[in-house]
Structures are given as C-alpha cells and as structure tokens.
Design a protein around this nucleic acid. Structure first.
Length: 371
DNA sequence: TAATCGTGGCG
DNA sequence: TCGCCAAGATT
C-alpha cells in the first residue's frame, strides 16, 4: 500500500497527486459548511477557529448526527458565548439546555470542563496530551480539537475515518481491534501542512461519499486508491463483531397533577447512570420480567390513578415499555429529590420522559380545567 | 476488555 | 417495521 504523504515521494514526482492531496483538493471544492467550522479558504487566509466552538461542537457530535447538533450548538453559543459564560452557568440550566440530545454525562462533563478551563486561566490546552486530561475529552476529541482548532498533526479517528481507511486499505481486522492499525495509517498519510482541513476532509468524505450503505464510489476523489473498491465490495468494510440482542424492560410512570394550580410532580434522577442528573415523573423500577410490577397498584402513593396509555422507547442496550398513569392530588409530603413544576416541558426532561408527559397531557389539562 | 450510556434518521 | 449507526468517553 502506498501510504506516503510527502509531495516529493518518488511515486508522485511523475505528476500523480497523493491520496491526501486528492482529498484536500476535493475538500476545497466540496466541503460542508457547518456553524462551528471555518472554510478552508478562510483558514488559508490566516483565520483561526474559536477553540471554544470546536470543543463545544465536538462534545455534542459524539455519537450524534450533525443535524441533531446544529440547533443545540446555536442555542448554547448564543446563551453562553464564551467558555467563561458556561463556567458561570448553573448546572441545572446546562442540563435543561442539553435535554433531548442524549448521553447526558456529556453535559455534566461539559460543565466540569468549562469550570476547569476557567480555573486554569481560561484558555484551552493546544496539545493533544493536554486536551486529553479534560473531562469528557477522549482520544478522538483530543485529536480533533488539536487538529481542527490548533492545526496540529494529530491522527483524528472517528467512525467516518474508520470506515474510509478500512475501505481504502481493505482492513480485514474487525473493529475495535483494527483501530490501532487505522490510527497508524492515518498518522502516515496526514499532511503536516493542513492537518485541520485533512481531518475535516476525511469526515466529510465519510459523511457524504463513503457512507455506511451504498457508498457513492463513482464520485469519490480517491476511488483509484481504494483497495475495497478494487476488490469489488466496499460496503463490507469496516468489519464489526456480531451484535447482542436487545433485552426489553417494562414499568409504569405516574404523572401527578396538583389540583390547585396544575403543577406536576417531578423528581431528579441520581447524578450517575442512565439519564443521570435528569428529571422525570416518578416511575417504578424497570424490570426485565414480562409480568413486571406495573399497574396502578405499583404507584409510589395512593391516588385515583387513571391509565392514560403506554409508551415505548429504545435505549442503546435495552428497549423500554412504560404504562402511563395520571391523577389529580392536593399535596404530597415529598422526599428531598421531588419537586412541583409549573412549566414541565422546560425542565431537564429526557425524550423518553417527554413521551410520558405527552401521553398524560390531555389528562393534565382536563384536571386543570376542572380544578 | 467489555459494558454502559440516548436519540433520531434512514434504507 | 426494524436494524443500523452517528465527529466516543468512562469505568
């Protein structure tokens, strides 16, 4: 395989552009325009990205699609324009703003990282190893910030790069073992004059051309370098281990409405674990048993519980079915982590709990009217 | 190393 | 409809 990156490599002196140069030429013409990105022409003219924007976008983009991130990025950027603003924010406000984006430990770490940055002078580290020490910043994100924000020759390997490289070089080793080999290849081909653009070019190629299903190889700027295409089945890469079947759990959720003012009883989940630090109406435990503890008799306290419907929700490693009940009550001697909310949908509700509330919503407004 | 941790879109 | 999987990190 030809993994040389120098423009002066013998094989290229005959006028044939290197893989990296082909990719960068394509990127110059076909790059995506994204809210957190500076264009290659702007970078060439001397512009530099805002490390805060790059960091914020990279955290949001972890296992999350560009389209899902865009509105969240804009809201965070407007509300907390600088890392110092984020450090000065309330934890709960950050969790509320993150609600719906998923993987909520990212939001906790985001705030912790902002606090850390501000406590250490207010500037992001500009090296991969320095960035790696920040909360919520792992190998990928450290390399991405180093390359994109500080234009350092870091090997940026995300899911796109794994797919692109495993196809170009027909890597037969399954992930995640292949990651070491892939990172080595990237290190060898990355152009030291444009590491930031190269990283983004690889990801744009993976997102728009070298897609997981039905890659558009005829449009690929580096298709003549692609071993997988030459072998006839690029879609076979990257190889992955077989997946486990998803278990299912079930339980019940209870939406209690205060008759006097229509406020809804909520509680805060523990800081760690599933949906950590987020808000929810009280629920039973989510059991694996098919005859799980559901039904109104499993409620946290006695009330005139009325069945409203059921919702289903798919998490990463299990499927959940919840029966939804509602009741109007006058009061509740609540434990510490319970509170009444008069603006439920503005709370830090994960999507699954928004589904619960929406299922009970007709009932909520009904109770409010007749209160 | 392997499990845990959300959500939405797409084929 | 349903499995796949997206700019992964943490423990």
């Amino acid at each position: 395989m030809n993994v040389s990156n120098s423009p002066m490599a013998p094989a290229e002196s005959a006028g044939k552009a290197s893989l990296s140069n082909r990719l960068l030429d394509w990127y110059d013409r076909h790059h995506r325009e994204l809210p957190w990105r500076i264009s290659p022409s702007a970078r060439a003219a001397g512009a530099v990205p805002d490390p805060y924007h790059i960091w914020l976008s990279e955290i949001m983009l972890q296992q999350t699609t560009v389209e899902a991130v865009k509105p969240y990025f804009q809201r965070f950027k407007e509300r907390w324009p600088h890392v110092s603003d984020l450090a000065g924010a309330e934890n709960d406000d950050v969790m509320k703003a993150w609600a719906g984006l998923g993987y909520y430990s990212r939001a906790r770490n985001l705030k912790a990282c902002a606090d850390h940055i501000v406590a250490h002078g207010g500037a992001f580290p500009d090296t991969e190893s320095g960035l790696l020490n920040l909360p919520g910043v792992g190998p990928y994100t450290a390399a991405a910030i180093a390359a994109i924000a500080f234009n350092q020759p870091a090997a940026v390997v995300d899911g796109n790069v794994e797919r692109v490289i495993s196809r170009l070089f027909a890597v037969e080793t399954p992930l995640p073992v292949a990651k070491v080999q892939i990172r080595q290849i990237v290190t060898e081909i990355l152009p030291h004059d444009r590491p930031g653009d190269f990283a983004q070019a690889m990801m744009d190629l993976g997102a728009t051309i070298c897609s997981p299903k039905r890659p558009r190889c005829m449009l690929c700027p580096v298709n003549e370098y692609c071993d997988a295409l030459a072998n006839g089945d690029p879609e076979r890469f990257p190889l992955r281990p077989p997946k486990m079947e998803k278990p299912s759990r079930r339980g019940a959720a209870f939406v209690a409405v205060r008759l006097s003012d229509g406020a809804v009883l909520l509680r805060k989940r523990p800081e760690k674990g599933l949906l950590g630090g987020m808000t929810e109406p009280p629920t039973t435990a989510w059991t694996a048993r098919k005859d799980g503890e559901t039904g109104a008799k499993a409620a946290p306290f006695d009330a005139n519980w009325k069945f409203c419907g059921r919702i289903s929700h798919i998490f990463t490693h299990f499927a959940l079915e919840l029966e939804v009940y509602s009741a109007g009550i006058e009061g509740f001697s609540q434990p510490d982590n319970y509170f009444w909310s008069s603006d439920v949908m503005a709370e830090a509700l994960p999507t699954v709990m928004k589904k619960v509330i929406e299922t009970a919503l007709p009932d909520i407004s009904k109770r409010r009217r007749f209160a």
